[in-house]
Design a protein around this nucleic acid. Sequence first.
DNA 1: GCAATAGTGTCTATTAGACAATATGGG
DNA 2: CCCATATTGTCTAATAGACACTATTGC
Lengths: 226, 226
Amino acid sequence: LQRTKQQSKWLFPLVIADVALFTLDRGSLKTLLIQRTNAPTGWALPGGLLDPSIDRSLDDTATRVLASKTHINLFHLEQVIVRSGPKRDPRGWSISVLYLALLPSDKLHAVVGNKTEAIAWCDPEHTGHRLVFDHDLMLKEALRVLRNRVTDGALPLHLLPLRFTLTELQHTCEAILKVKLDKSAFRRQIRNSPWLSKVPGAYLRGAQRPAQLYRAANGFNFKVSY
Amino acid sequence: LQRTKQQSKWLFPLVIADVALFTLDRGSLKTLLIQRTNAPTGWALPGGLLDPSIDRSLDDTATRVLASKTHINLFHLEQVIVRSGPKRDPRGWSISVLYLALLPSDKLHAVVGNKTEAIAWCDPEHTGHRLVFDHDLMLKEALRVLRNRVTDGALPLHLLPLRFTLTELQHTCEAILKVKLDKSAFRRQIRNSPWLSKVPGAYLRGAQRPAQLYRAANGFNFKVSY
DNA sequence: GCAATAGTGTCTATTAGACAATATGGG
DNA sequence: CCCATATTGTCTAATAGACACTATTGC
């Protein structure tokens, strides 16, 4: 096959990083959607094109895209799936790497849209929108990976503030999995987790017995561990 | 930043599918390496560039690349990891998707190199070669994913012939994990697997009690199931 | 004391690991 | 019979699920 520079749009695919960003909003799992102002218009996962002159890797692209939407440097970016083909993006042959990202719930209000984009925090299972590209499928896949990771115990720490109680951690897991967990069994399971540390003398007080506060342990760097 | 067509090599990254192909060779897990004839020369995982005029997806690229090396249409291609950056390939900014593939052991001898490439089946943990690009890391990652999948029970079926005994299945799992498994516990675990079917009346005979032959069950399409 | 939530204990069913026992063919 | 491997059984320790109990605060 002969190739010319005129064909470059056809021969060189668009390279994209898309991000499924999850957070907890008053106990419910939510995902960030944006309303695109450029064609194709409609609701989509936040994403953007690789810029080889800036990005040292496609992971960098994901971080950069997300920072431009959230104004926060996010921890825990994890590759989920690669989607590609000539039809999934009307602009041409494209390859898109989906990332899973988690936003601590106390940073929720730092996330705002810019002038040209509307944003929305949606229930990942019922967004209320049909997403453009193949983002409906991507979101479903991200949710599946997120749920699989909960059993590690470590991942939900990314969604919590620096200090949290075991009950809050349990409620976080329940919100992700959409199931009720037994308090006793839950605490037994996480008791020996190397990622949890008591904060000595720190308690959450209310109209009841105070709750011991915990934090992510030293060595837990908010990156995924295998 | 201004962009011109002259910069296209810089602005459009190489898009590559690499494959970690595993098989069983007389009870030992082996992976396929090729000796590159083009620069950079040296040993590497089999891989190749996306061709948007042929491939309907990057998964197609992986299938195509592998078919050109093995002359077999392989089942079970699974995405493992995406590596990218300006330095990992001396030819320029590149993005490479690594795939995990499994070759049934009775098809081992169908795999031959072409005239320009040497191939070798190597112990994935001690290849005896330093691989070019970042393929050492990729291979390590593929092996990790392969081992994680063994607990499903389904995946080792891809490495076995159409008919096999439970002992052969156990030895396959042991070869992948490099641990000894208890016969009784192993059979208890897979007893209720929906992916295993007895072949009625079919036995492997030897100088001992005959062994019941099994096959992958109807509905097991040799694709990964979540 | 009472309400409310934190934190622990207990019983049982299920599962995993180790090992033993039995079964069935070929010679 | 004997050998070799297939297949099943058994005992025990660890684990998971359900539920109940105790603990400690604010009011």
